[in-house]
Each structure stands twice: as C-alpha cells, then as structure tokens.
Nucleic acid binder design. Sequence first.
DNA 1: ACCACTAGTGGATAACGTCCTATAGCGGAG
DNA 2: CTCCGCTATAGGACGTTATCCACTAGTGGT
Lengths: 137, 137
Amino acid sequence: MPDFERCPCAGGTLDKLVRPAILSVLAAGPLHGYRLVEKLGSLGVSRGVQPDPTGVYRALRSMQRMRLVAARWDVSGPGPAKHVFRLTPAGKACLRTWVETLTTYRYAIDELLVTARHAPKSAKGSAKKNAKRSARR
Amino acid sequence: MPDFERCPCAGGTLDKLVRPAILSVLAAGPLHGYRLVEKLGSLGVSRGVQPDPTGVYRALRSMQRMRLVAARWDVSGPGPAKHVFRLTPAGKACLRTWVETLTTYRYAIDELLVTARHAPKSAKGSAKKNAKRSARR
DNA sequence: ACCACTAGTGGATAACGTCCTATAGCGGAG
DNA sequence: CTCCGCTATAGGACGTTATCCACTAGTGGT
C-alpha cells in the first residue's frame, strides 16, 4: 500500500473546526490571540499540534468583520500590545448554530463510518458481485 | 442577531467528506459517476441535497491519479458512455485510513461540542473574571 | 549587541467546493 | 423533424480556508 502521508485520508486536511473552537474558548471569557492559540493547541481538536497562528488571527479578523467578536487593544500589561477579543451576542448565537451544525455533522460521520465499515473488510472479499441485491431501490 | 445564511456555522461549508463517501460507496461495488452522485445524495452525509457532480467527478479523477480507483468506459448500455470506477487495493487501504481519521475527528467534534455547550448558555454569565486573576505570570 | 520569547500580520500558494457552461446520446412532444 | 429534457461527463472561473514563510515590534536575559 502506498504512503498516505499527503492523502486527505490521513486527516491533514480535515479542518473547519477552527472557528467553532475559537468561539468556544472565547465563550469562557475574553482573550487575546496569542493565548487563544495556546488554548486551542491544548484543546484536543488540534490533536496536539499548535494551530497556525496566522489562521487563527485571520479567522478572528473575519469573525470581527461579521460582528461575531469585538476587539480592543490592551497596552496596559508588559510586552507588545494585545488584541483582546470577546464574544458578541451574535457570536454566541453563532456558536449555538455551530453546535447544531456540528451535531448534524457528527451524525453524518457516524453514518459514513457505518457505511465504510460495511463492505471493505479484506482486500479480496468482494466476490459477491453475483449475490445480487435483488430488491432495493 | 444577523442572518447566518452564509456563515460557516450554518454548515454550508462543512465538507471534506466527499472522498471518503465516494470510497464507501465504491466499496460496495463498481459504479459510474452519475449513479455515484445519486447514491451520495441519498447517503445522509449530503443532508438531502445532491452533491455537486463536478466536485464528485473531480474527486474521482484525483483519486484515479492517486491509484485509489481504477476506471473503464462502459459503452454497452444505452445512453452516453459511462465512466465506471472501482476501488483498487490502495483505495481500500485509503478507506480504512479514512475510518481511523474520521473516528478521531468525531472524537474531536464531541469534545468541541462539550466545550461549546459549557459556557454560552445565557448572555451574561461571565462575571467571574476577578476570581482567579492572581496567579499565572 | 545579540538572541529568544511574546504578540500580531501580510503575501503566496494550494486544496476543495460550487456555480455556470458545454458536450454527446437518446427518447418523447409538438 | 425539431426542440426539449434527461442521462452522463467535464472544463472554467471563483470564493473560502488552511498553511508556509517572512516580517515588525516590545521586553528581558547573556
């Protein structure tokens, strides 16, 4: 079997969870981008690896344009200025929508897993082409 | 609250499942693209709507280049020529990898759902910021 | 002075899905 | 007979999203 390192099946391209993850973390309280990245990295959704900061920052700006999060600059503490984000009511509504969507998505994956585990078993067990699934459809 | 019609949270962009879905369907036996699209549409992963044929065809060609599926032309029946695809052993291995990946992914979604449902409840519950500001750098 | 860490960003690229359009075979309505 | 519509496949253009690389800037340690 070939190496599936850069095949989507290896999971490298399964994403789309950055935004709901951000919203989830922000739901616990305002936070600035850098800490957010750290939290996301420890969230399990990231499977151990720190998410790309650029992606997080861009998602934040996008969500800010959508009024899902509001931002302010914090220059009080030490170090560089921090961009602190907090959820807006719209962001909370968005998160609730995400919960519904992800629940549906989870069901879809469940169903797909059942379908996937149905047939493939062994590499040569498909000698039932004559078995005819008579009814059906 | 704004309309979330074109927000990712509405689920319109949750995808990445076309490839494993194709592999799953093909695991049950060879099929040509058009029927495949129909099957995928009735699979629940598609939430009722037929997947975009172009996307399916492109995924098929991509997977053909990766030797995950093999194709032949069927001109025996009536109507236009049909491109019939079947899984290769590599394709079956890929599907098994997908099963592992999606299982992991499902766990990540579960965890994210737990996190998401943790805090947001009402719009005013986050009055605990003073509680633990002391420690931590 | 140099370097590492914190904090935030822009550019380029690639993957993937989606909309619109085009083709070819073929069967039925007018 | 022509037009229409369904089956079946495919290309072009576009938008979104993630990732890699490089950059600015503050702060403190060697």
